[in-house]
Nucleic acid binder design. Structure first.
Lengths: 200, 200
DNA sequence: CTCGCATGTCACCGTTAGGTGACTTTATAG
DNA sequence: CTATAAAGTCACCTAACGGTGACATGCGAG
């Protein structure tokens, strides 16, 4: 044993991610996390106060939601110069690809969709704040007349997030092959088409 | 006590629906269902073999997935005469309204999205079969060139199903007010716009 | 009427969960 | 060296779960 409080805290936080990837948010509990961390569960209470606070720390430490750079690349200025519909397209496709790299985030999204608890409420609020921020940054020239376009964007995000959630375990949805790159190429194509519809 | 096997079976099946509406698929277990039915849990094993088979019976009894009439109204012939994009639009809007009337079905959809089990696999397969059937009936004239349109349709269905799932407990997603009729009107409008994009 | 079987009740088992108090070990300040 | 407080271990509690065997009860055939 190392007898180092900070390191043990860190191991617990990482164990949350591991447990999420391996067994999903179901079965995520004090006992499971402690088991994965190889640590006594009582330390969760001592160091964090409880599972809720540990999960909160996990949410802070990991940027479990992708950063703006991860979604947009480094070309924010380029994107801002595009017409609105193409801006939406760039954000959506970037977000899709970023999320596909983050199984733990998808797991949290699934959780959020299914359970309402103080923790998931916090995560949901953070996600909403994130989208408001993107909006403010990339669409500062948007007025009420762009509301339909932005609603369409949210609907499309909802759509591929749902597909990502189902792809964790299932392999096909509505004829789309979720386990093949070809299937996701079709999804990307559908997003592009839908965005073009938003402009008029 | 009534001492009527068939009636008790029926009460158990109905209790599944009640338990689903009241407490969600989480916490749906032998004990909970028996409690709601006001019946001893051992009867679930005696009459059905176990919870899985009881749930299967629930899936059969309730048309928990809406019928074609419920989605399309009685005007199938009229819809078939429309251009493809408008046909998609009619199906999607009909499905959205039908699902909004069926909280239990939405609960099952959430479940399906989150847990992979023999039962949810069966439900998922049934849903896929349903969509294949709609496709065959309404789009018998569709060729490979319509594949993008149908992918877009599936993406939009995924989108509003996700919104329906979140609307059970949350109230806002990506700026859309899920607890107000105005929010859903925006969603419907976005679906219409996206469908129009599919034709070219 | 009464006997037998179908119907329904009850008590109990093992397991797992969240949670807590009391214990042991180790680093370090004095 | 030693006292002490932090760090970590252990044993145990209650509750809920899925599941099962033994029991009580009422209906209907003979």
């Amino acid at each position: 044993m190392v007898r180092d409080k900070e390191q043990t805290r860190q191991r617990l936080i990482e164990a949350v991610g591991t447990a999420l990837s391996e067994h999903g948010f179901q079965g995520l509990g004090v006992n499971a996390v402690a088991r994965v961390a190889g640590v006594d569960k009582v330390l969760i209470y001592r160091y964090f106060g409880g599972l809720a606070e540990l999960l909160e720390a996990y949410g802070e430490s990991q940027g479990f939601w992708p950063s703006r750079e991860e979604v947009l690349g480094r070309k924010v200025a380029v994107i801002k110069a595009l017409p609105k519909a193409e801006r939406v397209e760039a954000v959506l496709l970037g977000l899709l690809d970023a999320l596909r790299q983050r199984p733990q985030t998808i797991e949290v999204l699934a959780w959020e969709a299914v359970q309402q608890s103080p923790l998931t409420a916090m995560l949901a609020e953070r996600r909403e704040a994130w989208s408001r921020q993107i909006l403010a940054e990339l669409f500062d020239d948007a007025g009420p007349e762009d509301r339909p376009l932005l609603t369409l964007a949210s609907l499309l995000v909802a759509g591929f997030q749902y597909l990502l959630i189902r792809a964790r375990r299932g392999s096909v949805y509505g004829g789309i092959a979720l386990d093949s790159e070809a299937g996701w190429a079709e999804v990307r194509d559908a997003i592009r088409r839908a965005c073009r519809a938003g402009c008029n």
